[in-house]
Amino acid sequence: MHRNYRILILLSPVVLWLIIFFFLPLISVFIYSFLKRGTYGGIETQFTLENYQRLFDGIYLGSLWRSVSTAFVCTAICLLVGYPFAYYLAYYRPKFRNVLLMLVVVPFWINFLIRTYAWILILRTEGLLNSSLSLLIPGFQPLELLNTPFAVQIGLVYGYLPFMILPLYVALEQMDLSLIDAAKDLGASPQHAFWHITLPLSLPGILAGSMLVFIPTVGAFLTPDILGGGKVSYIGNVIERQFKTARDFPFGSALSFVLMLIVLAGTVLYFRALRGSESVET
């Protein structure tokens, strides 16, 4: 009894806070997504599936698709760049390994808004990239890079690359290097040893990194807002518009609920895949 009393005291603040300010708001979003929009941003208490039917309009489906595909491309780029990076640190164990790792983490602590804004200075028409290129190539015509899907993609890779590198490094670093030596002793080529030993053993790191990149990029709002200039619409920005300008809370709620389902589905798939990859190991 005494023990249960202590657990109750320690846990009631967190449980109450999350019920009131996390679950209740999410439940109200769910309920609102089935209500009708009233005049002047109001809401009518009348059940409807209209908001979900509207999702299948070309534009909304288009921005949903753009968000999901951009997140996939972002994850793939981070993996292609991050894997060799983590592999080098884990396999060659350079002298300043910890310093290098620290330098990967530092950007994470720097305001995301500032890191995204920095790309405006580089990508704008009079920006650093165009002016450097025009110095190198005579007669170079400045490229319109800002406010394009390309700028958004770069901004997202820039923002989330560290989230890919760290779990990959953790997975690769824990690996027993003697396994690779054994494979080579037994006649495996380095490529063969990589594909059949290193890569399967690092699968948990690949999965964790991919999840950490995919989840925040699919719902990204800030990067498309700043580097896409509102000209290219992603699901996060469509949601913002429903609440800030269109004042259509029910439709915005339906969109948010769908976005949340995509993210939760991704998370569940991740844990499934992780369990699968661990059972392969043992």
Binding site: F21, F22, P25, L26, S28, V29, I215, P216, V218, G219, F221, G236, I239, E240, F243, G252, S253, S256, L259, M260, V263, L264, T267
Partner: peptide, 11 residues
């Protein structure tokens, strides 16, 4: 794991 924007509009 819930997207920022979803938590923001829910609140």
């Amino acid at each position: 794991i819930i997207p920022d924007i979803v938590l923001a509009i829910a609140l």
